[in-house]
Design a protein around this nucleic acid. Structure first.
Lengths: 340, 340
DNA sequence: AGGTTCTCTTAAACCGGTTCAGGTGAGCGT
DNA sequence: ACGCTCACCTGAACCGGTTTAAGAGAACCT
């Protein structure tokens, strides 16, 4: 009694043709007369036929799904505004294509490899988006072994056929440093992400570059694990120096906000006694006091374009690396000239 | 030349039995002699056989995947620490079961229904976890129409066969209010989430309850959309009142942090001039100045248990509603006795 | 008229599992 | 020695698509 979904065989019978021809017609393939094609399409729509993804999956050996494996402690992701916007962007590209995102959030890098392996071996996904690229990232070998298609966020540091889609964060960091130097700062510090991660390292390098460009030393760089907690620790270290910085450039917003808390706790007034810039533009940053000056990246577009690129890779189209509009500085209230 | 994955037919041939028997043996079904079973398992493992999810999917009409549709503006999710921890929890339950999470993040409720529909009609998932329950939520009808299994986070306000898994947030709100009353506050406000959402409404009701219990009026409740921006707006409204509150209970952390910013911007000192409590325990909250007193919920456990419950529903096991340990108040620095 | 070519179409195999009706043979009772 | 039961096993159908080899006609050529 339950109304079964019509299959291709039902359409064939109703249209008076064979299964094969229906398949051809529905896939816009040549070798079907205009009359037959029209009739088949008409019958299919009348019957409300919709392809069975499972059957198609089995016969064409594709999953029609993309994978995203995030290997970070949930604590860190919770605070980081990047991923939700990024994932929403992916969705925007996937939905119209009838594809879907399989998300795997694992706590560490050991579980990460197992996760990629499971996704690939069970044929859950046709390709993956690789984020948080690391130095000589072992995932390239893994991807190759598993025969997965892939794209990376940011250019890797090793030779690979995997295309990348990059968002130049260097210019955002440059803009932040330039802004601070123009305000008169000479002792500028950087609270960096883990050097294991390429983008953290790249931001750090941009920072040093920018300082060098102004003839300033880059002796005030502290590495962290990206958590607010570690950002606070780094800030305490920096502010404890005899020749403490008058401005700090943070590698993400949660650390910047935590750093601001540390400064205020010491009785410093931001930005009068200490200027602060963040990275990645979270919504809350606009509402704290003082509002956080930060470098904004368009995470949503990054996600959407990355997914589109990956779909093209999977379809075996020719693709080239993509560069998105660079990150830009969003001036708010947390920077000011240093105290005389 | 490419090393093909062995199929059940390879195992059958190698073990000298039929395909059917191999299937029985591998699924631990009766009707296979001990000797055959042992031989089949041995051959299967020697050949490195792994079941094809796609074939299994087609023949058993299951997806071996769960769906989660999140319908919120990315801006809001970005700030909200709940979902990442929640998703990580889901993953913890799914990975051992060989299942996978299909995540769909859409901007609004119109796209939400389309998303559920697509997941169900394409057979991507066997069930969904329904979050952000709304008043007389139309998703129950949708789920029923689509024939999807489901569980809900929190008890719905209508009769349904869908089991729920709840985390009592009322007692967290009660604890916050009691704490403030004990400190001496009499004018206590609540910045609530959108009443459309049951949990926002429930938190708001708990707030009123708690106040009534102390014989205090609940005239200071402002509804918001959960964004930091709207939390700031609500705070401005409350602080603009002639008889302004001395304490504000917020329905989430981003709004509490934004509210703190608004207060400080007006020259108020938190907690001396205004006490503030948040909800959901974000990491940054611990590092701002003053550190945010908040109600913590175990989002990770909630996710894990919800996924486990849904798997049991899908397996047609008998299940009952689940109640998790209630939310509890995490005392930090943002509350103090009101100024005399 | 016969052969070639081309377009349209069909039937059947295939993807890799699950399931079910029926067959085989050993063991049992009498 | 005969029938019965039961455990074990096989063969084939099935899930719903895709793909390919081959066939049927029509059109075109000489």
């Amino acid at each position: 009694m339950t109304k079964q979904r019509p299959t291709i065989a039902d359409v064939a019978r109703e249209a008076g043709v064979s299964k094969g021809l229906v398949s051809f017609a529905l896939n816009d393939r040549p070798g079907v007369s205009a009359a037959s094609r029209a009739r088949i399409l008409k019958v299919a729509s009348e019957l409300g036929w919709r392809p069975s993804l499972r059957a198609r999956s089995l016969s064409t050996d594709r999953a029609f799904a993309l994978g995203l494996v995030i290997a970070r402690d949930p604590e860190i992701i919770s605070a980081d505004p990047f991923f939700p916007a990024f994932i929403a962007g992916i969705e925007k590209a996937l939905a119209p294509a009838g594809q879907v995102l399989v998300l795997s959030m694992v706590p560490d890098e050991a579980a990460e490899a197992a996760s990629y392996r499971q996704l690939a071996e069970s044929g859950r996904v046709d390709g993956v988006i690789i984020t948080d690229l690391r130095r000589e990232d072992e995932r390239f070998a893994l991807i190759a072994e598993l025969g997965l298609a892939a794209v990376t966020l940011g250019r890797p540091d090793i030779d690979t056929l995997v295309p990348s889609i990059s968002l130049d964060d260097a210019s955002g960091i440059h803009a932040a440093v330039n802004h601070l130097v123009e305000l008169g700062h000479r002792r500028i510090a950087h609270v960096a992400g883990p050097y294991r991660m390429l983008h953290a390292r790249r931001r750090s390098a941009s920072f040093s570059d920018a300082l060098a460009h102004h003839g300033l030393p880059d002796d005030l760089v502290v590495e962290t694990d990206f958590t607010a907690s570690d950002g606070a620790r780094a800030t305490r270290e920096l502010l404890g120096l005899s020749d403490r910085p008058t401005a700090i450039v943070y590698a993400n917003d949660p650390m910047a906000i935590a750093g601001m808390g540390v400064a205020q706790r010491r009785g410093l007034t931001v930005p009068r006694d200490l200027s602060i810039t963040g990275f990645d533009g979270s919504e809350v940053g606009a509402f704290i006091h003082p509002a956080l000056t930060t470098v904004t990246t368009n995470a949503g577009e990054w996600g959407q374009r990355a997914a589109e690129l990956l779909l093209r890779v999977i379809a075996r189209e020719d693709v080239a690396d993509i560069d998105l509009a660079p990150a830009s500085l969003l001036l708010r209230e947390s920077t000011a000239p240093p105290q005389a």
